[in-house]
Design a protein around this nucleic acid. Structure first.
Lengths: 318, 318
DNA sequence: TGGCTTATACTTATCCTGAGCATAATCGAA
DNA sequence: TTCGATTATGCTCAGGATAAGTATAAGCCA
């Protein structure tokens, strides 16, 4: 073991690999969450980690800025995986993908770039539960997943499969858990219900709606969405996605867009205000219907004042 | 950008690197959290990722089993970083470290290996708040951190530094947050109060207690502890560290050992039981002082029944 | 038997959360 | 001008979760 450790410290040319940096870049515009995509919206932006980069994050920031023409704000690492077996043949040169979640505003993106913004629910239609699922999609999901369950060999396996589907998708009167984005994607993959599964060799059944992506990119996107949905509840990261000034309803709509579900308006306001996450600018929002709303800005001081502070979701059942 | 993407898909020999797998292996024995260490307890076990490994996790499992003689149970990825600049010269071959958190039981480790178990509080004495800090350590910490704050150039910078110290360490009557392990470590590093900082070029001040490690290993350990402390609250991972049968007090002691703080006994039991995390075995613990306790086992069924279930910490202020 | 230790059942006060009602302020159409 | 639609905002209320404490049970040992 000490031998193994020492060996790792030398250059081991035989085990040399390359590293790719993959970015899930998120913005929210008019209550819709967007992600930056390339390759005709079929891939997440990604670039190689090069020697010139001083660190992984530096590398990521460097080429994201080169792509969008604007600096990246909040960045956090998502996951690292080795993609042999999937992309490329079994004997292809090894490569590692290191994925990141980045938050910006859509208006920060420059012109003249191949990259552009797509709505993230195009890739995960079932994740948008704000208005409930379209009846057709709901029907498709349940019937296909029930079919998959039934196709298991033994009764107990069948029960197990259905239980898993019911938990992740909130069937049988269970609650919908918006954080299980990745679990839902993986379940659908296993069940062979998405194009990527068919591409990777699953029997070609009819596939459910939702735009696929190259390689593992939709899985990475799922990871990013899940992370973000979890994070807004205990860290004030939504504000990275908001303009400098906003109304409480705009803030609420952004949170709802990310979480994919509606929240109780009054309780939402109570939480935001009692946590002192925002302060009034004194100005009033123009061009609105109904009673005009006060404008607020994020109180950057909270970052220094407290270790934790989030936007809990006061969920509404309606 | 499309160019950059395509470039990443080819082998770029010039940017080839090697990847190391680093493990934070945790066990809890008699109410003390332990980690597996090598190199005279100065390093975490680590091994190279090799072509023979089908995936990163497979690689990790492979050589951990080779080291301990026993299979690894729960494993989760922690963080990936490129270590140029720190270890090795600026022009040394690039290498990436991918770190993992693994949970086992101490009795599972075989004999005849260099690796062995050390208490994790040897590396982070200030993280054990179960009996409060030893007065001497508490005094050292506050005075050194106050000194660091005072050494800032401007008054506002001084205030900022002290506020940060107060938040992460719970000074000035603030609450101690057991999850801020990494933030505390990084603060101490910045303040030049730990050996690693001096090694990396900080002015050689007198250093606070706590055993250092090679390279970034203590930082990785901090990441692992933080992750585990957060995770036990919403996923039933403590049970990975428990024997098959245990009393509720033993379970409580394990949780307290990991969290570094005490919990309210009665409320702890209520939480565990109402969540139906455990079931009675029917047996009674022997060789105890006081009234004998019932033995329990983990209800593995909860993993299938629910998406989330944790061991919330009913903290006691005493 | 009394004292020590741990286990376990209950009680209580407080705070948090979900939910709903009521009122205010604006615009536009009748 | 008034009514309705729409959004903003203040307030109440019931139920549940939480923190903390009290009380009792069941062993061991001197």
């Amino acid at each position: 073991m000490a031998g193994a450790t020492r060996k790792a410290l030398k250059t081991d040319a035989a085990n040399a690999i390359t590293a790719d940096l993959v970015a899930v870049l998120v913005a929210v515009t008019e209550g819709e969450p967007k992600i930056m995509t390339i390759a005709n919206d079929g891939a997440l932006p990604s670039g190689p980690f090069e020697f010139a980069h001083r660190s992984l994050q530096t590398g990521l920031r460097a080429w994201v800025e080169a792509q969008t023409g604007h600096p990246l704000g909040y960045v956090e690492q998502l996951y690292t995986f080795a993609d042999r077996g999937r992309a490329g043949g079994a004997k292809s040169p090894h490569s590692i993908s290191i994925s990141y979640l980045g938050l910006t505003r859509e208006d920060k993106v420059g012109q003249g770039f191949e990259a552009h913004w797509s709505g993230w629910y195009e890739y995960f239609p079932w994740e948008d539960q704000r208005a409930g699922l379209p009846a057709s999609l709901a029907k498709t999901l349940t019937s296909r997943l029930r079919g998959w369950s039934k196709s298991a060999a033994t009764t107990s396996l069948q029960r197990e499969r259905w239980q898993r589907a019911a938990i992740t998708f909130g069937f049988d009167g269970r609650e919908w858990n918006e954080e299980l984005v990745l679990q839902r994607y993986e379940l659908l993959y296993e069940a062979g219900l998405i194009p990527e599964a068919v591409r990777d060799g699953a029997p070609a059944t009819s596939v459910i709606p939702g735009r696929p992506m190259t390689g593992d990119h939709r899985r990475i996107l799922a990871t990013g969405i899940a992370r973000l949905r979890a994070k807004i509840k205990y860290r004030p990261v939504v504000f990275e996605l908001m303009p400098a000034e906003f109304t409480l309803l705009q803030l609420q709509r952004s949170v709802e867009a990310l979480a994919g579900r509606l929240v109780h308006k009054q309780n939402f306001r109570r939480l935001i205000e009692q946590q002192q996450l925002v302060e009034e600018t004194g100005a009033i929002a123009g061009d609105t219907v109904g009673r005009p709303a006060k404008l607020f800005r994020f109180r950057h001081a909270v970052l220094a004042e407290r270790a934790v502070a989030g936007t809990k979701l006061p969920l509404s059942r309606t």
